[in-house]
Structures are given as structure tokens and as C-alpha cells.
């Protein structure tokens, strides 16, 4: 019923969108792996970064990809102070407390955006949004090709930061053994906040990559958050290669299920995977446990 070219094209485009999903999931899995918290505010923070990119384009005439350079440090700072001043002190370290505090934060952020920007969807007009790059018989969406490239580079940079810098070493130490790390003089609260900040900064890049081909409204991030959780659980909570491979996989699944089931039922494939993984292999494909 579909020609092989259409199917292949949909899958490749899905794979490339999956790379941006992977970037969102990367932040989430890093935060989980180190702080052992499920960050429900991740989706709302993605919405914030998308609005920041939109503001950069609308009021300062920046290209969305250039805006990333300004939004990333801003999101880094937001993430750092959120963890340091709100999530850390308010939750007092209890698992349930953190879950509820981040849920409360996500509702506050989402509705502040609603109050500030109302529920209209905002888009950025660029001349390359509908641009295509021909690859053999396939036509690839230009923003998605850029998304794939930047996501891969970001993941590589993140790997370098974690493995080749002092703060990366400290982050890995805290993730493995919190008490031991604090005994050798690592400031755990600072490392937690730095990790949260790095995870949030990933969202700034993802926001910039999404904006040319997506719209943003106050609830946009909520649509991504379950997708990101699915990727994190599928790849194994806390596993960075898991998040990358999980992201690509979910992108393909979403493309395939919306091709065969239509747009309204399309998302169901992702949730079913989520439920099945949680039920039968909660450690995921690359889970450490």
C-alpha cells in the first residue's frame, strides 16, 4: 500500500527526529543517573527554552540556530539555581518529595507561560524550514538533518565533559558513591546543581533544533516529557548510550506508527513500548543494575 521509498523516507526522517528526542532524554537520564531523581519538570523546562529561542528570533532577529548560543547559558543558569535553591532544599532528599516538587514546578512553569504568553501557538518562519536535502531517492528534511548532526556533536561533547574534565570526574564520583565523594572533599550540592544545569542546558540545544520545524505553546513540553521518559526507561535509567539509541529507536517507532495508524493513534505506539518496558524489563536495554 505504501511504496518502499515512502516508508524508508518516513523512517529516516523519524530517525533524525529521534536524535533530537535523544538529546532531550540525555539531559533527563543524566539527572536521573547522578541525582537519582525523576525530573518531572524536564518537559516544562524544554518549553521554556523553546520560548527563549522564539523570543530571540522574534525580538532580536536571531536565527534559531544562533539563538542556541544565548539560550544555552541561560538554561544552564536556570537549571543550576532551580536545583540549588528549590528542588534540593524543598524535597529534603526523599524520593517521593522530589517527584512531587518537580511535578509542582512543572505546573508552575507551564501556567506562568500560559499567563505570560497565552495559549496561542508560536512559530518561527525561516526559509529553510521546508528545505530538503536529496539523498539518492530520498528527500530529507533540512532542519532534521541539522538536528541529527548537532545532537550527535552535543552527545560527544557531553561524553568529553564527563570523562575528560574535573567536574565530569566529580559528577561520576557522586553518581557512584555520594558519601564517599563528600568525604574526599567534593561539594555534593554543587555537583548536583551542575548536573541539573547540564541536563537543562541540553534542553536549550534541543529547543533550538526543534523550533524551525515545530511550534511552541505552554503545553508543548508536556507532549515531549512522556516520550523522553520512554526513551530513558528503554535505554536504561542513567545510561547515556542507552538514551542515544533509545531516542533513535523511538523516533523510528513514532514515524512508523503514525504512518500506519494515522496521527491521532500514532503516539500510542510509544506509550505501549513504555508500559511493556516498565513491566518486563525495567532496567532497560543498557541498564546498569
Amino acid at each position: 500500500m505504501y511504496s518502499p521509498t515512502i516508508i524508508l523516507e518516513a523512517l529516516v526522517n523519524g530517525l533524525m527526529l529521534g536524535a533530537v528526542y535523544a538529546l532531550i532524554a540525555l539531559g533527563l537520564t543524566l539527572i536521573y543517573g547522578v541525582l537519582h531523581i525523576v525530573n518531572f519538570a524536564h518537559g516544562a523546562l524544554l518549553t521554556v527554552s523553546m520560548y527563549l529561542v522564539w523570543i530571540g528570533c522574534e525580538y532580536f532577529g536571531l536565527d534559531p540556530y544562533v539563538a542556541i548560543l544565548f539560550v544555552t547559558p541561560a538554561m544552564f543558569a536556570i537549571g543550576y539555581f532551580l536545583q540549588r535553591l528549590v528542588i534540593g532544599p524543598a524535597s529534603r532528599g526523599s524520593d517521593n518529595g522530589i517527584l512531587l516538587v518537580t511535578l509542582g514546578l512543572s505546573i508552575v512553569i507551564q501556567n506562568l507561560l500560559l499567563a505570560g504568553f497565552n495559549s496561542d501557538t508560536r512559530t518561527i518562519v525561516t526559509d529553510y524550514a521546508f528545505g530538503v536535502i536529496p539523498l539518492g531517492p530520498l528527500l530529507l528534511s533540512q532542519p532534521r538533518v541539522i538536528g541529527l548532526a548537532v545532537s550527535v556533536v552535543t552527545a560527544g561533547l557531553l561524553w568529553l565533559v564527563l570523562n575528560r574534565t574535573d567536574i565530569g570526574k566529580a559528577i561520576r564520583a557522586v553518581a557512584k558513591e555520594k558519601l564517599g565523594a563528600s568525604l574526599v572533599g567534593i561539594d555534593v550540592a554543587h555537583v548536583y546543581a551542575m548536573t541539573f544545569a547540564i541536563g537543562t542546558a541540553c534542553l536549550a540545544i534541543a529547543g533550538g533544533l526543534l523550533m524551525p520545524s515545530f511550534y511552541v505553546s505552554p503545553t508543548t513540553g508536556a507532549a515531549f516529557v512522556l516520550v523522553a521518559f520512554t526513551i530513558v526507561v528503554l535505554g536504561g535509567m542513567g545510561s547515556i548510550p542507552g538514551a542515544l539509541i533509545g531516542g533513535l529507536l523511538i523516533g523510528v517507532v513514532e514515524a512508523a506508527s503514525s504512518l500506519f495508524l494515522g496521527d491521532s493513534l500514532g503516539q500510542i505506539g510509544i506509550f505501549l513500548i513504555f508500559i511493556l518496558v516498565l513491566l518486563f524489563k525495567p532496567t532497560g536495554l543498557f541498564g546498569a543494575r
Partner: peptide, 25 residues
């Protein structure tokens, strides 16, 4: 009090939830 700005009531809900977890578990 908010004069028809949507969402502010939920902002208050969210803040109360965070405060509750912090000070009145």
C-alpha cells in the same frame, strides 16, 4: 483577583504543593 489571566490559579496550586512538600510533608 487575576482579572481573567488564565493559568494563575494553577501557578498558586503548584507553589502550594512545593511549599507543602518542603514545610508540611
Amino acid at each position: 483577583f487575576s482579572g481573567g489571566i488564565a493559568g494563575l490559579d494553577l501557578v498558586v496550586f503548584g507553589i502550594i504543593l512545593v511549599l507543602c512538600v518542603a514545610f508540611a510533608p
